[in-house]
Design a protein around this nucleic acid. Structure first.
Lengths: 215, 215
DNA sequence: GGAGTACAGTGACTGTTGTCACATAGGAAA
DNA sequence: TTTCCTATGTGACAACAGTCACTGTACTCC
């Protein structure tokens, strides 16, 4: 990959100081992910911190029986907080990360990421801010699962989707069901009800979101 | 409070370097909590990082309708990760923390806690380690809520209790129901079933745990 | 156009959890 | 002992979500 190209990728991380950006350019791996390709797998040893420079990553949890569970989306300029945490102890990933769109990620070797915490103030701040943000999102997700019925969780889910990728939610009912660890029929029924309120319009393979607040 | 007493409290934090301990001694507030007293409230502005030197704190989430939801327990030597995070932005607490037993907490003003991150390596490590640990526990909790039925969640809950306070779990069915955001009758039924397997013995106001793995 | 395939809609049924109503039991205090 | 309060037990019922079986519907590739 051209170094011109790399620098362009780094534009998303302009809050980091220049010497650090130079180090990242020199020492980390840049990787292209096709749509649907996995960046992290459950059980895999994590040896790098993952930054996203382009595209969209979905970070989710998976249990023994293939139930999956959406945690949050990563957008360009974000880092996978989990990859920063596991990093230090050579731990196994507890999560999956998959490219929703074609994406570009930056893989920073763990020992460097650790080193930089002390060396670069902006890196330190970036890491702390990432933790915070993800922690809060996780809390929200937890709230929604713990306290809300499926119909409200579905709305919460759609909202999040609209936020990262606009009003045309390009997902099949089956995919939604997976991410909420529910079943297609149930999601279909609930979406139908939502459509009747006028909040959304259903199409084949995508959902048009008008206004989720009227519910 | 005697400074002798304070230093004793700090023994739980021996991984922190001496100059830092001195600063903590000099600059932070030490507070005694009675059993049941609250350390943090939902909606309260957080202006301190909370360390626990003695006792046991329960950290939980509460929604609008008074449903509560246990996140984790803090033991002496631990810090409330949330209080570290909110700290920087003068944010409102999203959580509740309550003393389960009589406890002693150390309140470190936010600006110091922030300052120390750069100044003291051991503080920095401590903060990062706290984030990690809590993040992982939160993930476990999320898993249990998202993927498990109530009977398994109850076992998960009892295990956690045994770990922090031994085999006599001093809780009423009502309290357990609250923390799992379920209802007393349901918990009673499930506990009864557990008793029949021999895993536990039920008593008035406490549960004797024999072996939760036989289930 | 026809066959094949993935997606979506629907009714019937089941199991789990929550709710209601009420019974029982243990402990504290008068 | 009697009284009272709180904790616990239990049966009946309702509601929600998951499953099964099947139908319908749009798109793709010959």
């Amino acid at each position: 990959m051209e170094s011109i190209h790399k620098e362009e990728l780094l534009q998303k991380f302009s809050q980091l100081e220049q010497p650090l950006l130079d180090e990242i350019l020199a020492q980390s791996t840049f990787k292209h992910l096709e749509e649907g390709e996995e960046a992290l797998r459950t059980g895999q040893y994590i040896k790098s911190t993952v930054l996203l420079s382009k595209g969209l990553l979905k970070v989710y949890r998976e249990d023994e029986e293939d139930n999956e569970f959406l945690m949050y989306y990563l957008e360009p300029g974000n880092a996978c907080a989990l990859s920063m945490m596991c990093t230090a102890r050579d731990e196994q990933s507890q999560i999956m990360a998959k490219a929703v769109d074609e994406s570009e990620i930056i893989l920073i070797p763990s020992h460097l990421s650790e080193l930089w915490l002390a060396k670069y103030k902006t890196w330190h701040n970036f890491v702390i801010a990432s933790y915070r943000q993800r922690f809060e999102e996780l809390l929200q997700t937890l709230d929604s699962v713990a306290f809300k019925a499926l119909d409200e969780r579905l709305i919460f889910y759609l909202r999040r989707h609209v936020k990262v990728s606009g009003n045309e939610v390009k997902l099949s009912h089956q995919q939604i069901a997976n991410e909420l660890s529910s079943s297609r029929e149930v999601i279909s029924r609930l979406l139908k009800k939502l459509e009747q309120t006028g909040a959304i319009t259903l199409h084949r393979n995508y959902i048009e979101v008008h206004d989720l607040d009227i519910v």
